Simulated assay, not measured.
Amino acid sequence: MTLAVRIRHSFGDFMLDVDFEAPPGLTVLFGRSGSGKTTVINAVAGLLRPDEGRIAVDGQTLLDSAGRVDLPPHRRGLGYVFQEARLFPHMSVRQNLKFSRWFRKGTRADFGQVVEMLGIGDLLDRRPGALSGGERQRVAIGRALLGDPGILLADEPLAALDDARKAEILPYFERLRDEAAVPILYVSHSAAEVARLATTVVALENGRVAGQGPAADVLGDPMLTPLGARAMGAVLSARVVAHHDDGLSELDAGGVPLFVPRVVQSAGQTIRLRIAAQEVMLSRARPEGVSALNILPGTIEQVRPGEGPGAIVSLATPAGRILARITQRSAKTLGLAEGMHCHAIIKSVAIAPQDIGGQD
């Protein structure tokens, strides 16, 4: 099932003009605050009528300004998860979940399957006031799914949660991505969330689509900076080889060993991980006698100076593309240039748990 979006809308000095397709899986609208992400998702939901455009899900037209088609929100067959759960406080979790089934008759969604997928079986008789933020969001997701939506919309659903609650709920979004038959359009300005969750990324800058494609391609593109240089980083796929007694897990990334803080996945499973560009050092020769455990050989693809003192270096390695954020002075001192052999140096502890997730 594919979502096709083409809309134009003016907010005074700001013009939103986007055209993209979201294929099956989890598509992230990614960019800075004010880039147009929430406007797009609200237009898809029918909460905002754009000046002109067309929106269709798997061939069903939701909006066509030229053809004067504009289905109201309740007829679009969509589920929406907001930043805050918006549960009914006087109802139990069970009643909140069943509300969407009452609201949309004939739903085929399996109550037990949704409850099991989201791990909320032991919460059914409690009220929202007795739940943590992460638990409330899981219930909100369940309520949206039980409405049997044609597509699930999520507008920065983790933004109101602290790091511990985000870590709690991210695996459930991974499971939704992998197991639910519902395509997901997800708004975020967190590079870590995008790296873990996205099947497809649509990067927005100043109301325009700056780039679109798999997470590894978009986040690893040195020419795309939807959140600025500090948020840049590479997304790699790797296979879990072993868990060691010192708290590290050993990965195989294209034949190169990587050591990261212990992961929950079992040996043999494939995961994806994000390596922030600012956590990567470069060396012309293979370094000896350093504390960093991860050293990846590669070839420089591009050295791109920034507007300030920094530069982004793109390095092709057996594990995939690695980005390094260094100073222009360092690049000049090392004589870095396209086609030069180089080594990326990455500390194991620089790869945070929130940057590691299951593979889709």
Rank of each mutant, 00 (worst) to 15 (best):
G79E: 12
E116V: 14
A85C: 07
H74S: 14
A191H: 12
D125W: 02
S190N: 11
V187T: 13
L78T: 11
N206H: 02
L145S: 10
G112L: 08
V115P: 00
L97E: 15
K105V: 07
G129M: 12
L118A: 04
A130F: 02
A210W: 00
R196C: 03
A191M: 04
S92F: 03
G79D: 14
R101H: 09
V93P: 06
I184M: 10
L97Q: 13
K105C: 00
E156R: 09
V139N: 12
V114S: 08
P157M: 12
W102H: 14
A191P: 12
R165C: 02
G79T: 13
Q83W: 05
D70I: 00
V115I: 14
A203G: 05
L176G: 05
P128S: 13
R196N: 07
V201Y: 03
R175W: 03
L197I: 03
A216G: 00
L152F: 03
R101N: 03
H189I: 06
D178E: 14
I169L: 05
R208C: 01
A198W: 11
A167Y: 00
R165M: 11
A167Q: 08
R175C: 01
R104D: 00
L124A: 06
H189T: 08
D125H: 12
K166S: 12
L71T: 05
V115W: 07
F88E: 00
F173R: 09
